[in-house]
Design a protein around this nucleic acid. Structure first.
Lengths: 250, 250
DNA sequence: GACGTTTAATTGTCTGACAAATGAAAATTG
DNA sequence: CAATTTTCATTTGTCAGACAATTAAACGTC
């Protein structure tokens, strides 16, 4: 890969791209050691700080790891689902907060995705997944629970539901839906929601999964989706009413 | 956010995290200008190269953009779906290639996700989406088409199907499934597949969407999933047979 | 007022240096 | 000879200072 010093693009971005392309193409296999920063600087005919900026870009994407010392250097990282998970959640959260996505759109996407793995979860759920879901449901029924803790427990419940599908690819792809959208919805609807209703649906979902009943699970998720959407509608109606009252008084 | 010079973690990583947290928390709103590199170096009590490494990390995640000149600097970027899309695809591709995901697992996840948006696509597909899908299907029927071009057209077809749901959040979340897994499957099955079979299913999918028939669309996607999986099984059976023969001869 | 020119601010890049970590080789010791 | 300690070379992490390139605002000229 050639580097063009006259390009509009930063040298460090070009170098990062060159190395990234090598990783994607498989030219640089996992755990391969890259040349030292000094050697890379020579190869690309740039200074060491520029090379370092390029390497930091790759490190930010978990594509490489660096190690100091005699046998240290930058190594191609095996990208793990856990590593990608966090980034996916962060990105999804920012996408939602920065792009004025309507509540309905987010809600629709979130439940469509969760319903996608419900049949698999009904088939494959282990005792462990069921135990987690029931423990979280039980926690959600505690009277003194803070809204934050309720939300966290809610996320844990749905995450267990997704993980029950036993498909790591699905779990990863759904991370954004569960861990980014669920808190968003909790934040919007927590004033209007009835915890008992949610706890009841959660309990029934666990029961349906227990007996491997995919149909009922799906129906319950639809019920939860409808309830969430109705909450959202109510909250926004209240907001708008208050806003109109305010402008009328002013 | 405090920076700890004695931490095991790089200063540039700590600084990047501090700024990233500010962006996520909303302390740094979109289009806000960060202090200049020199000012940041002062504030965090580090040198300018260290600050720059931190900023490059953030730039690699599309969280900031930089501009030269008198009124330039680093600005908080509005993370757009298009920007996140590419990264999501890259990450998904690497996850699949680096984690020895079985063909069945990938196939299952891919079709579960696509089926999730089929009902919405059946409801909302525009004439545009239909036209795209039919144009791609027509292209796939051309005799002289290379395998690469067939794969690209295949991706375009499924992308149009997903986009037809009219939900940008869903489109984003499914990017990994369509643009990373579909090529993977094409690469594996291209020796065994029958293009005519795929073209026929694609044609029928477009017809079902045309008349807003969600049920038939879903059934056809299941059919495609089954066909793909059977292809995968056949290919791997052939591989294993060849391998066993080889080891027996050696 | 319109149009060049200068200027100041800011990022991009380079050079050179030193500190810290780390494994390997060499020296030492039993 | 084996085990241990020391030394050392390599590599990343960080710093300081400098200059180039870019850009918009301020200034001056007509």
């Amino acid at each position: 890969m050639k580097i063009d010093p006259n390009s509009k693009i930063d040298l460090s971005a070009q170098i990062a791209k060159a190395i990234r392309d090598g990783i994607i193409a498989g030219t640089l296999p996992v755990d391969e050691r890259l040349p030292s920063e000094a050697e890379l600087a020579d190869q690309f005919a740039v200074s060491r700080p520029t090379v370092r900026e390029a390497l930091k870009r790759l490190a930010a994407q978990s594509l490489i790891r660096t190690q100091r010392g005699a046998t240290g250097g930058a190594f191609v990282n095996r990208l793990r689902f856990e590593d990608a998970y966090g980034q996916h959640v962060t990105t999804s959260t920012l996408l939602l907060s920065m792009n004025s996505v309507s509540f309905e759109t987010a809600c629709e996407a979130r439940f469509a995705l969760e319903r996608a793995c419900a049949p698999l979860s009904a088939k494959r759920r282990t005792a462990d997944h069921l135990a987690t879901m029931r423990a979280e449901t039980h926690r959600q029924a505690q009277p003194g629970l803070s809204d934050e803790a309720f939300c966290a427990s809610d996320v844990a419940f749905h995450r267990a539901l997704v993980d029950a599908a036993g498909n790591p690819v699905l779990s990863y792809q759904l991370a954004g839906a569960v861990e980014a959208m669920q808190p968003l919805m909790n934040m919007i609807t927590f004033t209007a929601r009835n915890r008992a209703t949610i706890v009841e649906i959660h309990t029934e979902i666990a029961n349906a999964l227990d007996v491997h009943n995919a149909c009922t699970t799906d129906a319950l998720l639809c019920q939860l989706a409808d309830y969430t959407e109705s909450l959202g509608k109510r909250v926004f109606a209240t907001h708008n009413a208050a806003k109109n009252d305010g402008s009328a008084e002013a």
